[in-house]
Design a protein around this nucleic acid. Structure first.
Lengths: 242, 242
DNA sequence: GCTGTCTAAAATGTCAGACAATTAAACGCG
DNA sequence: CGCGTTTAATTGTCTGACATTTTAGACAGC
């Protein structure tokens, strides 16, 4: 392993890239140990500090883990669903907030994707998923629930819907769309009337999934999309007036 | 800013987390400058090396950029779509390969999501999107095209379909599902007969989008899903026999 | 006053060397 | 054989130095 001496970029970035490429291309397998920091420093002909900075970059991307001690070192890490989930949600949320994505676009994306899950979820949802949905609906109906908690519960309900499809890849990809909407949803003030409508639609969705009636689920989701969009518009208008 | 001295984790990880939280929570705005490395070292009461390792972690997540020179330093970075795309694709691909996700699951997720885009794409696709699809279909029909190139073109076709929906959030979320399938698709040997069927379905999809007939697009996509699944199964069987 | 040049300062990037902390294996001893 | 102890390997942290890059400001000349 050598690096391009002509390249102007940071050495630590170049080294990180070289190792990253080796991992991604499959040259290195999960749990395989990288050479020690000193060995890498020798190989790349840089100091140990530079190697360390490169390794920290990889650690930040969950590509490696490090262990101290005699048999320690840096090991190629198996990317876990949970970590990827968390990272995906963080990135999606940042992407939306930093680029000022409008409510409409995010909302449309979210519900389009959710509707894609509905048929699968109606076929495969387990009693567990249904129970979670019912529990969240119940929670949403509780008096005195803050807007923020209402949103939390809303996300939990929809996550159960998505997970009901029993496809982890689907759940992963949708996590970004559903959770990243939350900051935008939190701008909305939910009146009791708003909540009643949403709870009604949630109930229809849960009923449809329980009956494995995917057409009804789709209809209710479509209505929920439209309703959420109007709520969002109102919130944006109210925000603009202030 | 202080860090928990009781915590056993790496100092650089703790410091990275502290700064990351400040950025994500919105305490720091885009292009705002962080204190210099020496100042951070003083604030957190650690050495400059440790601060640097923390900053490299953040740089790896595209949260900051650094500039050298008198007015240089670390600045909060606006996360760009392109970078987020690239990262999302890398992560999704790794997630699938490292966790041995089966072809069926990935395929189901991909096409379920694509079908969610079809109605929007049929309403909004521009002549550009249609032209890209036609061009890729043409490319797929070229004789002597390697399997890998065929897959590349397939991905480009589907990306145009998704982008046709004109919703960047949708494009972003789907990029992971579509592109991450590529390594799995590359395991398949596409006979001329296979290719003809796929090209036929692609043509039907492009025609349907051009006519803004979303029902036809959905039907063709459903058929393509089923066909891809059978191809995948055959490939897995052939792989198992060897 | 304007302009171009030079210099100093500030900041990141890199290096070398040291020591601390941790861990597992090797070793010795009863 | 079993059980502490030592030892070696490795990462984590610190210190100080120097290189490189970039800008602001001083300064000279017109």
């Amino acid at each position: 392993m050598k690096i391009d001496p002509k390249n102007k970029a940071d050495l630590s970035a170049q080294i990180a890239k070289a190792i990253r490429d080796a991992i991604i291309s499959g040259d290195m397998n999960v749990d395989e140990r990288l050479p020690s920091e000193s060995e890498l420093a020798d190989q790349f002909e840089v100091s140990r500090s530079t190697v360390r900075e490169a390794l920290k970059r990889l650690a930040a991307q969950n590509l490696i883990r490090t262990q101290r001690g005699a048999t320690g070192g840096a090991f190629v890490r198996r990317l876990s669903y949970d970590e990827a989930y968390a990272q995906h949600i963080t990135t999606s949320t940042l992407l939306l907030s930093m680029n000022a994505v409008d409510f409409e676009t995010a909302c449309e994306a979210r519900f389009a994707l959710e509707r894609a899950c509905a048929p699968l979820s109606s076929a495969r949802r387990t009693p567990d998923h249904l129970a979670t949905m019912r529990a969240e609906i119940h929670r949403q109906a509780q008096p005195g629930l803050s807007d923020e908690r209402f949103c939390d519960s809303d996300v939990a309900f929809h996550r159960a819907l998505v997970d009901g499809a029993g496809n982890p890849v689907l759940s992963y990809q949708l996590a970004g769309a559903v959770e990243a909407m939350q900051p935008l949803m939190n701008m909305i003030t939910f009146t009791q009337r708003n909540r009643d409508v949403i709870i009604g639609l949630h109930t229809r969705i849960a009923d449809a999934l329980e009956m494995q009636n995917s057409a009804d689920a789709d209809t209710a989701l479509a209505e929920l999309t439209a309703y959420t969009l109007t709520l969002g518009e109102e919130a944006m208008e109210a925000r603009a007036r202030r």
